[in-house]
């Protein structure tokens, strides 16, 4: 069943897909660090949404979802962008690094660490594309 993006159902399905991805496991086997994926409003989305992911050595240990007005935890990293740009990333039309270089996304956190995880980032996107999604 399709999950709406962004929603709690979506991120929970994403976690399942990710944890079943051997490519992600291999690419991220050294990774330690939790993430917030922040979906900002634009003409298509009128309320901000935030995903929380606890990523640890190739596994996604937990996820959570925060709507606008709710306070997400502090994390080591944040990847922040408008809804339309998140669509592009998930659909494969924009790679996450290009997203940062073109200022469509903002990366908060140790950039060095993220830059060496580009393969893992690619696998995150691949997994996102496998989640049956209904975009708002």
């Amino acid at each position: 069943m399709k999950a709406k993006f962004p929603s709690k159902e979506w991120i929970e399905q994403f976690m399942v897909v990710l944890n079943n991805s051997p490519d992600y496991k291999e690419a991220a086997e050294w990774w330690e660090g939790d993430f917030l994926f922040v979906v900002e409003t634009d003409e298509k989305l009128d309320k901000k949404a935030t995903f929380y992911l606890d990523l640890w050595h190739g596994d996604c240990r937990s996820v959570d979802y925060f709507e606008e007005g709710q306070e997400p935890p502090e994390t080591e990293f944040q990847y922040i962008g408008k809804y339309s740009n998140w669509l592009k990333v998930i659909n494969g039309d924009l790679d996450p690094i290009k997203g940062i270089l073109t200022r469509k996304f903002k990366l908060v956190g140790d950039k060095g660490k993220v830059m060496r995880a580009t393969k893992a980032a690619k696998e995150l996107v691949n997994s996102a594309q496998k989640v049956p999604t209904e975009f708002v």
């Binding site: 690419a27 790679d95 690094i97 950039k111 830059m115 060496r116 995880a117 580009t118 393969k119």
Partner: peptide, 10 residues
């Protein structure tokens, strides 16, 4: 050299 990881892996 910060580009090395992305250049090789990505």
């Amino acid at each position: 050299a910060g580009f090395v990881d992305a250049a090789v892996d990505f």
